[in-house]
Design a protein around this nucleic acid. Structure first.
Lengths: 325, 325
DNA sequence: CAAATATAGTGAAACGTTTCTAATAAAAAG
DNA sequence: CTTTTTATTAGAAACGTTTCACTATATTTG
């Protein structure tokens, strides 16, 4: 391995001089700067990032930590984060949070391998996040309401989004509306449920426990639980699914039982994933600004890093009406 | 920041002793080991990963570098890589290669921030990869045929896949088959074109230049170029699209012009992305083992890292017949 | 022309670990 | 009772940078 020392030797200067020269410090005369650069090029010198990080006590890297790297849902968020990180001349690394306290995410946070982080990973709990955040490692969370000096959140307005969705169903004349739920411990799910509840109550309907069906945000589960539900006696006329994935499964279940969508049963999802507009019938859903979330969050990371205050924020959602209602 | 030195002081031992103790070396008596662990816990000590990396001259991190982090196409590959990396107790970081020589990908490779890498990013060119690969940094590429001591490839059998696709069309009686091409400089595209060509020639058809339409792998482009093509006089009866994205765009174009699929025009894609089975009509396509690619590649990284030889490999593809043909 | 200042370069410490080698003390062997 | 071995701990160097404090020249100033 060719180190700075080798370059310095070849150029016939001290290693400190070589360092200054390569960083183009004005302390070093142009002539020796040239000499050092040449030596560096000749030897094919590459600075050792890790050594530099250690000395400078920073990595100029921002981490984005996700529950699971393969969720297609994330891609727009990632893009937003990437754009802002690059704009600041930093690097972005994406890591997984699966594996709990010995996940890559947790390790990198703990070991100061990143200078800031955006977290969208329910698997890392609040206490752990609070423990590692500091002035030199601000954290923005996208999946919970957590706020302190060095931790801010960017959320979407889940509650209002769900409220919009269910109100829309009610306005169209659907009254027996099922809530197809995500996992109980999901923050998003909880908020969306609140929105469902509020829309019902404000329109004079009761919350009927038998119309709350629990799922886990996956298409498969959506298919299965809705198949099961429709096979029983109670008739309903609409479904509000806590996310699009389950809604897609539900649509398949509904069609298999030869109910007509939206005439017999209407359905609204949440997220506006790509598939939503391609499925048959195209799915009415709640769109939220995923790319913007990424941008907001990352800008906040840099704000805190630069010593200014950042304010947590909740972004609005939008009802996208398609043929499923 | 609490360092090993602090722990050592608190425990009343030398820092070397503290290091051995925390790493549970048998050189240190159980009594002092306990003492040091306690001091560590009391102070909330966290080892500094960067410092350790520098000293040990390794990071125990594998990089996966993609052209662009937001491609949903990658998610299965990522999963395969992640699974193998975790199984080896290493960490995975995913980084972008966009930005060329000052992309995160390139920087991390150059600066030895990872111990091995899987690359699926045409934006990084062969020369650069060859330059950085070494025994202590093996690289597996997924998007080209590049082979040396420390560089191996895992590819899918693009040529045969395309051959299967076009043969299938011919067997079904379609004879005027358009090739909807990806970018000329894409390795995948080149191979797929060769497969198209071979299938035609082997079945006694000629390659007709006006039936080669250039696209860029995006849905939008697929829609536009096929719309334009169909508006002109020449009648065709099938399209082989170099990927599913373009095929989806093409399907929309075809339907808008009220041709029937597959009666008037049949279409086959390549990749078997998720949307392929949801689109109307469901798309016949070539499936390839994306998850397996990730697994193979990552296993090879570790093989080379452990000093054994790895063999580049080409994985088979599979024709998935759906209603578009 | 002496004194003050600017310029160019150097040496060494530091970042936080790991690990080699040496030192000490206790135990075993002769 | 001396010598050798073993167990435990300590000291110091090393990983590859950056940067502080300093020296030695060269230049400016009064």
């Amino acid at each position: 391995m060719v180190t700075l020392r080798d370059v310095a030797n070849k150029a016939g200067v001290a290693v400190s001089t070589a360092s200054y020269a390569l960083n183009n410090s004005s302390k070093i005369s142009l002539a020796t700067r040239k000499k050092v650069h040449k030596a560096s090029r000749d030897l094919g010198y590459q600075p050792h990032g890790i050594a530099r990080n250690l000395k400078k006590q920073k990595t100029e890297t921002i981490g984005l930590f996700l529950n699971d790297l393969s969720g297609p849902y994330y891609s727009e968020v990632i893009q937003g984060v990437q754009d802002v990180v690059s704009a600041h001349g930093y690097d972005l690394i994406v890591g997984s949070a699966s594996g709990g306290t010995n996940s890559t995410a947790y390790k990198f946070l703990l070991e100061k391998r990143v200078d800031g982080a955006v977290i969208l990973a329910p698997k890392i709990n609040d206490a752990e996040i609070s423990r590692v955040a500091k002035a030199s490692l601000p954290i923005i969370v996208l999946d919970r309401r957590l706020d302190s000096d060095y931790i801010k959140y960017v959320l979407i307005d889940n509650l209002n989004g769900a409220y919009q969705a269910v109100s829309h169903l009610i306005n169209r004349g659907y009254h027996k509306i099922v809530y197809l739920s995500g996992p109980e411990d999901s923050f998003d799910n909880q908020e969306r449920f609140k929105g469902y509840q509020r829309a019902l109550l404000e329109n004079g309907f009761n919350l009927m426990p038998q119309r709350i069906i629990s799922g886990n945000f996956t298409e498969k589960e959506g298919y299965q639980v809705i198949s099961g539900f429709l096979a029983q006696e109670e008739r309903i006329d609409a479904i509000f699914s806590a996310n699009d994935e389950m809604a897609i499964g539900a649509i398949q279940a509904i069609r298999e039982m030869s109910f007509k969508i939206p005439d017999d049963i209407a359905i609204v999802g949440f997220d506006d994933i790509r598939l939503a507009s391609y499925i048959n019938p195209p799915l009415t859903t709640i769109r939220h600004p995923k790319y913007e979330m990424g941008r907001f969050a990352t800008n906040m990371v840099f704000q805190v890093l630069h010593g200014s205050k950042a304010e947590s924020v909740v972004l609005p959602t939008q009802l996208i009406t398609r043929q499923s209602t």
